[in-house]
Design a protein around this nucleic acid. Sequence first.
DNA 1: TATAAAATAGATATCGTTGTCAAAGTATGT
DNA 2: ACATACTTTGACAACGATATCTATTTTATA
Lengths: 336, 336
Amino acid sequence: MSVTIKDVSNHASVSIKTVSRVINNEKNVAEATKSKVLASIKKLGFKPNKSAQSLRSKRSYMIALLYDNPNKSYLADIQNGILQVCKKTGYNLVLQECDYEDKNLSNSIINFIEDFKIDGLVVTPPLSDMDDFLSNLEQANIHYSIIAPSTKKVSSPYVSSNDYDASYEMTEKIISLGHKKIGFVKGHAMHSASSLRFNGFINAMDDYSLNRNFDWIIQGDFSFESGFQAGEKIFSSSEHPTAIFASNDSMAAGVMKSAQMKKILIPEKLSIVGFDDSPTAEQVWPSLSTVKQPVIEMALHAAKLLIGEFDGLTEETVSKEFQSEIIIRESLKNLN
Amino acid sequence: MSVTIKDVSNHASVSIKTVSRVINNEKNVAEATKSKVLASIKKLGFKPNKSAQSLRSKRSYMIALLYDNPNKSYLADIQNGILQVCKKTGYNLVLQECDYEDKNLSNSIINFIEDFKIDGLVVTPPLSDMDDFLSNLEQANIHYSIIAPSTKKVSSPYVSSNDYDASYEMTEKIISLGHKKIGFVKGHAMHSASSLRFNGFINAMDDYSLNRNFDWIIQGDFSFESGFQAGEKIFSSSEHPTAIFASNDSMAAGVMKSAQMKKILIPEKLSIVGFDDSPTAEQVWPSLSTVKQPVIEMALHAAKLLIGEFDGLTEETVSKEFQSEIIIRESLKNLN
DNA sequence: TATAAAATAGATATCGTTGTCAAAGTATGT
DNA sequence: ACATACTTTGACAACGATATCTATTTTATA
């Protein structure tokens, strides 16, 4: 039926084991032998049987994506990036949804890994921030790479984005357009990105000697509804800001709705800025100025890092911080 | 290390093969033997090794999701539903992105299936509409279940939604609120849902003896941009409709933007209605009235159907049409 | 040149299941 | 009581790779 190692070994007149060595890029195979085997493999169209490999080598050639994130668009991008690497390397991606509040999370994940012999994990926020969980994984000897960890350990590979810098720059941009009264809607307290984004804002405000008005600094949770509530609070204060920076686009849209219902013209009377460049950012009117992280590339790199851990990819595979891009759309007005 | 069949067979004092029979629910095992074995399995915490099963039985215990759909939210829901079934049945989900315009699609999918010994496919729009592709799969003896097929074959299990009826009802609803001049933005021509939705609209208009104005019936492609362009066209005609029904939410948001840029008040001067209940529908202002399909449930059922094909689930598993729900939000005004 | 060390290649056991086939046990019909 | 069919069970091979260990050849070192 299908071509096996044995067929290849016959065709190339070498032993089965030698073919196996070539497949697995083991050393101590003479160049001549190697190319002879590779030629036979190509000629016969041989592809190793994953199940057999897995059975014998205790590896599944599957990696799992761990997530507890309601943001569908973010997740889709993450998947996209990982899948690109999987396709190249012959791995498969398994999705594993988690509940970050589950007290038994570590155990159930460790069980899952062992049951399916999953080779490694890509961990996304907010799980990336749970240091206990991560160290449990580590103790169980599980490979993982982290997207946007709160503390950048040397021990495990990670990718991150410059949330702080991007937030600082965006705030600078808002200030440079003449805004002095700026509000801020904070993200979900469990996400480390929230504090990074907030700190970027605050530090920029300080550096430009602008006043923090705590009536305009509201705790949100990344949801549209919380953004709307933040807007309601801000607009109930005696004075209004000229700009509001929300920690993500959903909340920015919520703020926008609140303003629009109060007939506050955007961007004439109020500028609004978001973060993430979600599909909604383009589809609301006026369209949202926002910060775009290269999510797909980040996920792609995270997958490379992970697979590199046990497969030894040839490319450079080091933990890396990615640069975000500031996108100016209609919702931000120049007051100068 | 881990518990094997052999351990169970020793513990239960039966042969290895008998344990295997119990695991696989084969018949011709005496009740007494069966419960003895089950007790041992439970006691020892035995779980069959997937790789070994797969190697011997030529099944992977993986199903794949085939998609070529830029709608991240739709896809996320689909995945969600399938994953729920996978978790219960012990299958894994593999993602496979396709290009529906790829002339070689059938072959590359068939190769993929054979390489990874994928047990079956869940096919989503617009691939669901490609009858050639589907019959190629059938000839290659590949199991699949279809979400929203254009032609409901008896041969393969499917799930669908009542797009036509929902569109008809929504149109009726718009009409009942006193609208007589209604525009429509059609969806991507390749999706069979597009024509169903359009026909529902047209037939309702006819049944209520309302005029079709072809200046207000615009071909879109499900993208925000095409919705915006549709708005531009409609608003450049001599007369304006009082309501516009777009075949999905992104296009509705596009129409909305076009209107808002022209200072056409929504919903006072123009009502807008979408389809899908995407996250955007809630997050724009005014929020979009729309039609919500039970996408998660549909996907869940599709997965059950598929896995039932080769695993013989106990539950009823028949192809099924799901009912959509009409959601009225701010964007639709009562003219009466 | 002798000898140790390293590189290369192969024979065979093994991973943990399911498939095949034959044997033993049980029920049914005459 | 015996032939026949069906149910139940088990022994052993097989799936297609990798691991281990051994044998041979090549290279390095004294």
